[in-house]
Design a protein around this nucleic acid. Sequence first.
DNA 1: CTGAAAGCGCTTACAG
DNA 2: CTGAAAGCGCTTACAG
Lengths: 331, 331
Amino acid sequence: VLVSDTRRPRVTAADVAREAGVSRATVGFVMNKPAGISISAATAEKVLAAADRLGYRPHIAAQALARGRSNIVLLVLPDWPMEHTLTRHLEEAERVLSDAGYSMVTYTRRAGGRARPLWQVMDVDVVVGFTSFPVEELKSIRAAGVARVVPEGSFDLEHNPWVSIGAQRQVQHLVERGHHALAFAGPDEPRLEQLAQLRQRAAVTEAQLSGVRLMPEQRPLAGRSPEAAEAAVRLWVEAGITGVVAFNDEVAAAVVNGARRAGIAVPRRLAVIGHDDTPLARLFSQAISSVRVGTADLGGYLAAMALAALDGREAPALPVPEAEVVVRATT
Amino acid sequence: VLVSDTRRPRVTAADVAREAGVSRATVGFVMNKPAGISISAATAEKVLAAADRLGYRPHIAAQALARGRSNIVLLVLPDWPMEHTLTRHLEEAERVLSDAGYSMVTYTRRAGGRARPLWQVMDVDVVVGFTSFPVEELKSIRAAGVARVVPEGSFDLEHNPWVSIGAQRQVQHLVERGHHALAFAGPDEPRLEQLAQLRQRAAVTEAQLSGVRLMPEQRPLAGRSPEAAEAAVRLWVEAGITGVVAFNDEVAAAVVNGARRAGIAVPRRLAVIGHDDTPLARLFSQAISSVRVGTADLGGYLAAMALAALDGREAPALPVPEAEVVVRATT
DNA sequence: CTGAAAGCGCTTACAG
DNA sequence: CTGAAAGCGCTTACAG
C-alpha cells in the first residue's frame, strides 16, 4: 500500500501574476470578477492560461480569512439509525445550497463520540439543524463564533410537519379500512425514542379527530424477540385492536411476524401499516403497506432557511409536506 | 420561525491580550503551548480567564493559514445504499483520528450531485478514500492542492479483505452444511454492482478451494418483483442448486420469499445465507442466517493510513478482518 | 515573559 | 488596467 505525498510547493496568485506578466491585483480581479472592475478578454485569458499552466488553486483558508466567510453550511443530523430516509432529504438540500454558491457539510453527533463538534474545528457560515438545538449545543455553536444558527426556537421536532404527516396518513388509512380500535407499535431503539413519541402523539390526535380509539401505550417491538412481538399481538387482539400503526417498516415487519406466530391473520384480523416505504416493505413475506413521506421538500426548506439566515432575511414559511399511502398486503 | 443573527464583532487574540494586560505573543503562547516556551501558571491563568470572559475563540481559517494545515481529514464514502454498515466503520475511524488531534469530515459523492466536491471548497490535510480513487478523481484532488491522498494504487476494492471475507465465510458455512452446488444472488442496484461482482468472485474462488460448484451468473433479485425471485429460485433448484450465497440480507430475504412462493422449503431444499447481519435478518419470517463482518478494524485501518500519510510514514500493514457466521433458520 | 514583526495567501480599496 | 498596500487573525522566530 503506497501513500501519496507529492508536496510541491504551493502555487500562489503571485506566481500566476509573474507567469502571466500582470500585476498581483489583476489576478485577483480575474479570479473574483468584482463588480465595477472590467478586465479585457485578452488579459483575462492570459491570466487563466497561466493559472491553468501552473495548476493554481486559491488557498481556501486564506480566502476564508480575507473574505470573512467560508461559504460552507454545516448541516447537523440527528443520530437516527435511518440514514436511508435522511439521505433523501440531504440531496435536495445540497442541490439548493450548491445553486446558491454554498457547500454543504453534514455532521452527525454520535452518542459515544469524543471528537470535537465540527463547528469548533472548521470555518462555517451557518449551522443548520435538522431539528432545533438543545440549549447546551446552541451555546457551544455560538461560543465557536458561528453567528448564524437555524432553526432557532420554534422549529423543533414537535412542530415539524414532516414528523406528524406520516402518522396522520397511517391512521386515516386504517380508519378508511373500517378500523375503530388502533394501537401504535414503536421501535426498540433509544435513539428513536423522541421521534417515536411525537409520531405516536400525532397518531393519537388524528385518531381522536377521526373518532376512533388508539391505545396510548407505546410498545417497543422491532429488534426484540419474535416471542415479544407475538405476545404484544396477542394482547392487542384480546383488547379488541384491529389495526396497528407501526413506527416504521421494520416495526411493521416485527408485528406481522408476531401475528404469524400467534396464528392471527393479517390483514383479516389485524391490519398493519408501516412508515417510510423502505425496500423491506416490498420484500417481506406479506408485502407491507406503508406511508411514503415527501422528503425533498424538507431538505429544500432547511436549505432555504440557511440561505435566509445568511442574507439576514426572515425564514421562509413552512411548506406543507406530502405523504401518500402505499397499499400492499397487510391492510 | 426565528433566525438567529447575533453578529457580535469577533473577539480576537489582541482583545484578549489587552483584557489580560499581557502581550499579544503571550496569548499565543498560552493558547498553543509551543515546545521550549514556559509561561508562569499565574500568567496563563490570567490569560485564560480573560479569554473566557470575552468568549474568545481562535479564528479557524486564520489558524489554518498561519499553520499551513487544518487538522481535518476528509473521508470520501462510496455512494452505497448501505449506510448502516458504513457507519460502523466510521465511528472507529473518527475515534482514532480524534485521539490524534484530527477531525474527520465525511463526504459522499452523489451520482446526480452538481455540487463541487468538498476537497475543492474546504481546507483539508488529507483525503482518505474508502476505496482507491478513480484516476479522474485523484487528479481533481491533487489539483485542489491536497498533498496527501490515501489509499493510492494498490488498496482498491479488489484487494480489500473486508470485501471478500464475508463471501468466503458464507461459502464455508454452506459447505459445512453439506452443500455442493451453490449460487450467488446479487442485488438489483446499479450502485452496488462493483461490490457485488467482487463478492461473487470471492465466493467463486472459495468454492473452488472447497471443491464445490458455484453458478457463475449473478442474478439480481432484491428490489425486483416477488415473481422474479420465484422464477430464479425455480431455476436454481432445477439446476441442482441447494445453497444460495446472498449479497446481503435484503437479497437473502427476497430469495426466501421466492422459495416460499415456489413451494420450496427453506432450508431443507434450499439453504440461504445473507450478509451484514442487519436487523432485518432477525425480523424476517424465517430468521435469516447471515455473516457479520468486523468493521471497526477497517475504520481504524483507514484512520491509521491517514495518520501515516500525514506523518510521512509508510502505511501500516493490512490487518486481517474478522467475520462470523450467525446461524439462524435459513441454513 | 515582552515587543515589535514577519509571514501564511488571499481580497480589495486607493491613487494613478 | 497597474503598483503599492492594508487588512483578515493567527503562529512563531527573534532580540531583549
